[in-house]
């Protein structure tokens, strides 16, 4: 069941996440709610999606039990702010950020890991 009203694709299950990450070289997932700290990240991803065709942009509902692989990821340890935004390169989580991020904070991460 979809829980987020955003224009980016939503991952609904842990197995979908696993498959997506396994089959794509560059993946960014924003795991959040429809809250004030999360919406700006979705908005930025929506824009970047049309500009960066080599990266897959997805959202996932933080409150879904299926999002446990992100909520419990080692890189997200100590995070206390939504959303948890994670980046995968060749199946491996290479970066994670907590709370609101703007375009000028996100693009250097994409440039660094997804060249």
């Amino acid at each position: 069941m979809k829980r987020l009203q955003t224009e980016i694709h939503e991952i609904e299950t842990a197995s979908e996440l696993e498959k997506l990450v396994a089959e794509n070289e560059n993946v960014m997932v924003c795991c959040g709610r429809m809250g004030p700290m999360c919406i700006p990240v979705y908005d930025t991803m929506e824009e970047l999606e049309s500009e960066r065709s080599t990266i897959k942009f997805y959202s996932m509902a933080f409150d879904s039990p299926e999002a446990a692989p992100i909520r419990n990821a080692a890189m997200c340890k100590g995070f206390m702010g939504l959303p948890f935004t994670v980046y995968y390169k060749n199946g491996v989580m290479v970066q994670a950020t907590s709370s609101i991020q703007n375009r000028s904070q996100i693009t250097p991460i994409l440039d660094q890991h997804f060249k």
Binding site: R33, P36, M37, G78, F79, M80, G81, L82, S99
Partner: peptide, 17 residues
């Protein structure tokens, strides 16, 4: 500590506390 203890949104992050 933004995002790891400091927050500006109770609705978003309250439950972490």
């Amino acid at each position: 500590f933004k995002g790891t203890g400091i927050s500006y949104c109770a609705t978003c992050d309250g439950e972490f506390f």
